[in-house]
């Protein structure tokens, strides 16, 4: 069972018969002896080495060793601290090393309401962070102003800085923050599918499917993507998958997974 899965995943085009396997074994022996050269060597390398782009490896590495910034604003900061503790343990996802300096941090969690007096400070701290950098807006206040629709609070931190993930809640539970963080990881890794839409038969409910509205009308691309996604749901053809439903056509940063 396991071997079969591995074989399916392997880059070799042919899973291979016993004879084919025998040929590969012999060729590997020749390689070790140094008898292989030129075309044969090239062919062997192409068949047996899994190639990937450096970009992908970098993104995989980056997403699994994120340094958050120690930046607490209000109530959510306490829940952010709780995320580090033993019960929630963000170290499982490789983001337990909180950095006090923005220069060393990879992402910032806006944990709380951003007042008009604090907004320039937040923006400056964000500007001091090195690229690539990400921002999570935690809780209702920093996402939209929340319940504080008044003179003192900026109505959503994305008014003055880019935000990648919004986490609802007042304050969000640490689990919610963890979920948001794993979403961010997916986003960094190039937006791979998390798989739950397929499990829950929810393909077509992506936010990007109805995004980039211009003057009340969805754009052609998103309309087409939305229609395709709906078709997928209607047909419930499993083989189509999220890629067939227009994955990658949505704008970057909107709706992951």
């Amino acid at each position: 069972m396991r071997r079969e899965k591995l074989r399916r995943l392997s880059p070799l085009s042919e899973p291979g018969s016993p004879e084919h396997l025998r040929v590969r074994q012999l060729r590997a022996r020749d390689l070790l002896r140094g008898d292989l050269d030129d075309d044969e060597l090239t062919e062997h390398v192409e068949q047996s080495v899994m190639t990937t782009t450096l970009d992908k490896v970098l993104r995989w590495g980056a997403s699994n060793s994120m340094f958050p910034m120690t930046f607490g604003l209000a109530c959510c900061a306490i829940e952010m601290m709780a995320m580090v503790t033993s019960r929630y343990d963000i170290a499982r996802f490789g983001a337990e090393a909180f950095r006090a300096s923005p220069r060393q941090a990879d992402f910032i969690i806006l944990s709380g309401r951003v007042s008009i007096k604090m907004a320039p400070v937040v923006r400056r701290v964000y500007d001091q962070m090195l690229e690539p950098r990400w921002a999570i807006s935690m809780g209702a206040c920093s996402s939209s102003g929340g319940m504080f629709a008044n003179y003192a609070v900026v109505q959503g931190a994305d008014k003055f800085m880019p935000v990648d993930i919004h986490i609802p809640g007042c304050p969000p539970r640490p689990e919610a923050l963890l979920y948001g963080f794993t979403k961010l990881q997916r986003a960094i890794m190039g937006n791979p599918d998390q798989g739950w839409r397929r499990r829950y038969n929810a393909i077509g409910t992506e936010e990007w499917a109805r995004d980039d509205v211009i003057a009340g009308q969805p754009s052609e691309a998103s309309e087409a993507a939305y229609g395709r996604a709906r078709q997928v749901v209607a047909r419930t053809v499993e083989s189509t998958g999220p890629e067939g439903a227009g994955g990658g056509e949505g704008p970057r940063g909107a709706g992951f997974g």
Binding site: L73, A74, G112, R113, S115, K117, M118, V121, M147, F148, A149, N150, Y151, A152, V153
Partner: peptide, 11 residues
């Protein structure tokens, strides 16, 4: 102080 002034009393 005042970097977290939320205007709660006004709200």
């Amino acid at each position: 102080i005042g970097y977290l002034h939320t205007g709660i009393e006004k709200s």
